[in-house]
Every structure is written in C-alpha cells, then in structure tokens.
Computed example of a mutant assay.
Amino acid sequence: MTPRTSTGSWGRAWPPRGWLYLHAQDATEGLQATRDHLPDLILLDLDMPGTDGMTLCRQFKEDPDLVPIPVIFLTGTLDVATKVQAFDLGAIDYVTKPFDTIELKARVRAALRTKRYHDLLTTKARIDALTGLWNRGYLNDQLAMEISHLQRSDLALSLAMVDIDLFKPVNDTHGHPFGDRIIQGVAGALNRLSRDTDVVCRYGGEEFAIILRDTSSYGASVIAERMRAEIETLSFRLGRECIAVTVSIGVAGGDRFVETAELTGDALLQAADKALYEAKNQGRNRVVTG
C-alpha cells in the first residue's frame, strides 16, 4: 500500500506481474483496507494527509491481526532519528524518495521472500506432529484474534472442547502406539466433519478444541452432536478385537456471556472446559452446552 507518486517508471512497471496491488489515499482508508485484505506487505509513505505514517504503523502493530505484516517505509528524509523511530515501530526496511523502481522491486521481493520463510517456519511450529492438526499455541493465538474480531463486529463465536472417553484404560491395556492410532483416528474424524471456517486443534493428550466461527452456542451444539454421533461409529482393530471409542464434548458460545468485556479467550476456554467436565459427569458420550 502506498500513496500515488509521480516517479516516472512507476506506472506501467508496477505492480510486477503476479502481484496484486491495493492503493489507499489516507491512513483511515489504508487501515481499513489492510484489515479487509490482510496483504503480504505494506508500502507506507511517512508523509500522508491527516494521520502520518508513523502513527499508522503504530496502529498496524497494535492490531493482533496485522502485526505479522511487514512494513516498508517510503521516506523523503535521510534523517537517522526518523529511520530509527520507524524501525522501533516495527518497519523492516525503508526506501528514500525519489526512489528507483528497480531498487524498490528488489526490496519488496526480499521482504516477501523473508515473510514466506517466516510463515513456513511459523506454520510448522504450530502443527501437532501426531495428528497434523493445529496445536495449543496456535489455538491460543487464534482465539485472541477471533475475540478481537468479535468485539468489532456482530458475528458469533463458539468453542468446543472434545475429550476421548476412558482413554487411559485403553492406553494402559493396549499400549501407547494403539492409543496414538485412536487419537489420530478421532483427529481425522473431527477434521473431516468440521467446516472450512472452523479451526480444529489438538489441545493436549486425548483432548481437542474447535473454534467455530460465526456460530452461536446452539449452532455449535448441533455441530458437536453430529461429530459425537459420527465418532461413536468408529472402531479400531487390534488383532481380532475391535475397540470402539466415544467422546464427550463441552460447548461454550460468546452469546452466553452477559457482558462483552467478560469474553476473553481464557473465559471461553474455561466455560467450554466446565461444560466438558459436566458431560463426563453425566455419563460421557454426550454434548453439554455451558
């Protein structure tokens, strides 16, 4: 994102083939466009009408959704203090005006390449090795982002906690490799039965968590019941023996919180976990909404 410029070769040569370029006239438009499109890179001019580039960069870095997006400043000054301030705010590079288009392209390519490697490493670090699902760290980060979205919109949000019933006796009797097979099978079923918008994570051990976007607590309970019923039909063969499994599910929805300010990721987790505990208390293999 960058303001218009009169640099001669900017027009036809930009953006390079394969790049989608979004333009914003001022900070307000730029902030909204960034939130709407979540670009891979931001080109930010320090000199803009109204809010200056430094202030806008600070707003980017205060938004959990926008923090990972790299920022390259376009500046007409060579002042060291200005550059230091830009780096302190989270910029990864700067280009002085009037700039050379070839140099700008090279810096943009380098920034995008670095971001791609960073994204690959980040993704790998957030995937559970046994199941291929997202891990608990990703769940915590994603929940924080979803709560932030919720506070700015009228969308719903729910969370389901899923636990394999009586898993420890099966694990102790038949061994950990067989227990891992069960965890993988349940994980696969949850992933298969979830929607594209859902976020399925392994919470730890034999427990899973599912973020259900734009879903009320009632809608989440319907989805959870479908998952519970499907998993009840699974069986895992060990020699001549077939082992059946069931799950208990606790559901919590943001619509059940009286005050929006009380809705946090931890509060939603605690509510879902409490509902899960109640499902086990009531005899397991059931869904309880907290």
Score class of each variant (00 low, 15 high):
27 A>F: 09
103 E>Q: 11
209 A>M: 09
26 D>E: 12
45 D>Q: 01
264 T>M: 11
103 E>D: 15
151 Q>K: 15
193 L>N: 08
146 E>I: 10
151 Q>G: 09
17 R>S: 15
159 L>G: 05
144 A>S: 08
214 D>M: 13
52 D>Q: 03
158 S>W: 08
25 Q>P: 00
113 R>Q: 13
207 E>Q: 05
66 L>E: 02
26 D>K: 06
70 P>L: 12
150 L>T: 09
248 S>M: 07
45 D>F: 03
92 I>W: 03
210 I>C: 07
130 L>E: 09
221 S>E: 14
218 Y>F: 14
100 D>E: 13
272 A>F: 00
241 E>V: 10
195 R>P: 03
253 G>I: 06
102 I>N: 03
169 P>A: 15
251 V>E: 11
250 G>W: 06
190 L>Y: 03
106 A>T: 07
111 A>I: 07
251 V>W: 07
274 K>G: 10
158 S>G: 08
108 V>T: 11
275 A>P: 01
16 P>G: 13
196 D>K: 13
202 R>T: 08
154 D>I: 04
111 A>S: 13
239 G>R: 06
122 T>Y: 14
139 L>P: 00
9 S>H: 03
26 D>G: 05
145 M>K: 15
233 T>W: 11
274 K>E: 14
239 G>F: 04
121 L>Q: 08
158 S>L: 10
61 K>P: 00
227 M>S: 02
231 I>T: 10
173 T>P: 00
43 L>P: 00
